[in-house]
Nucleic acid binder design. Structure first.
Lengths: 225, 225
DNA sequence: CAAGCCGGTAACTAAACAGTTACTTGATGA
DNA sequence: TCATCAAGTAACTGTTTAGTTACCGGCTTG
């Protein structure tokens, strides 16, 4: 009775691993798990993502995942935080106040659109997090201060434009940002249902370029005097 | 040894049900399942929705769900189709060509915004379906013709506006619709993360009203000559 | 130079899950 | 008045899943 099965309630010794151990590299393993998790959560949502799939994608196993990140929920929050840090960091490098107000707004709109286009996983993660009513994001302490900078800088550009008489007095920084983000987010995140129901391939380069111009046009038209 | 458990591999007779059977009503049961499924899928996505939870919410059991709808995927597609039929049916009742072109566009924008506001489950279902790249919607035969009417009617309104000289010649019906839908969809579907990161409660009535006006303003500003 | 810690593996477990089966009940029409 | 079929119940099953445990081995340090 040395074989597997048949001994109730008692653990039995496992066969020792005979495979050669891969080179150790904690940082690499951690980063691989985070990247694999980003893809898995983006493709399948929080509910559909599989811990086994993440471990396999990362070329490691579940034990390491739990070792570095605690559990599935904490790993998910880490992924979400990193995604936000990514876009806000790139945004800061823009310095939209350096040129004319109109160019500043146009630059922000173009940046946002292109960032969304190049980071579909960011859009997916936002979608998943909102499905769950920001349940995990709300727990994050890191992220609240990350966003005041954006609104502050945008506010300055708008003020300058108002002073120069090119923007209307009612232009509001949050509204302007939400307008830019709305137009980019919806077009890209909903491209699959939209392409299906309207029978037009929205991701085709000609259509993408047209929408890019449209975003800049709409944003400026809504605030120009 | 007549008790439960202990006889391997062989089925045993089940105790007959002693509970009183509820009144039979196939239509009611079917409708209850569909409504419960709509809520469950909207709240948890396709991956997170539980068949047991749907049955319980509908006040019935899994057997009936499989009896009426085949399986989880077919039920989900039915829910999605009904959601689209719902908005497109309400939209048709608008007759946006009956007044001036400007009023027509404004009416469509207001209708879309208010419909989104009153049907959060529709937005959630779109989000889930797009996460899966319209995997199920693509299989639907019913829905493709449902949308040509919308674009057709919108196109007529725009043409009339161009003829009257109030709209620019470049105004495109799909772009106009996508603009309206973008501004409504993003604000509402992403309200939870947005409220969290910007520290402002977007669902507060004052903010909702401001955004409603904003949508109409932006849409018209983008096409007015 | 050995002891123990840290990075790593793979098998294991309890619970949850989609889907099925065995059976009951009520209505209808021949 | 009974055969038949549709509506309904609840227990069951095979599989998947998040999370755990037992064990391994190289590197660092006392």
């Amino acid at each position: 009775m040395n074989d597997s099965g048949g001994n109730n309630g008692k653990k039995q010794a496992r066969r020792p691993s005979t495979e050669r151990t891969a080179q150790r590299d904690p940082e690499r393993t951690r980063a691989a798990i985070l990247e694999a998790a980003t893809r898995e959560f983006a493709e399948n949502g929080m509910g559909g993502a599989r811990v086994d799939a993440i471990a396999e994608r990362a070329g490691t196993n579940k034990r390491m995942l739990y070792h570095y990140f605690g559990d599935k929920e904490q790993l998910y929050l880490k992924v979400l935080e990193e995604a936000y840090v990514g876009i806000r960091t790139a945004e800061r490098a823009l310095h939209i106040g350096d040129r004319s107000p109109e160019e500043g707004i146009s630059e922000l709109a173009l940046f946002t659109w292109r960032y969304f286009l190049q980071h579909p996983e960011f859009l997916s993660l936002l979608g998943t997090e909102n499905l769950h009513r920001a349940r995990w994001l709300r727990q994050s302490v890191r992220l609240k201060e990350l966003h005041s900078h954006l609104i502050g800088e945008l506010s300055e550009v708008l003020e300058q434009g108002k002073k120069q008489g090119v923007f209307v007095e009612t232009a509001d920084p949050l509204h302007v940002y939400l307008t830019i983000a709305s137009l980019g987010y919806f077009y890209l995140s909903n491209q699959y249902t939209l392409s299906t129901i309207f029978g037009r391939d929205l991701i085709e380069p000609a259509n993408l370029n047209a929408w890019e111009s449209h975003i800049v046009h709409v944003t400026l038209a809504s605030i120009k005097r």
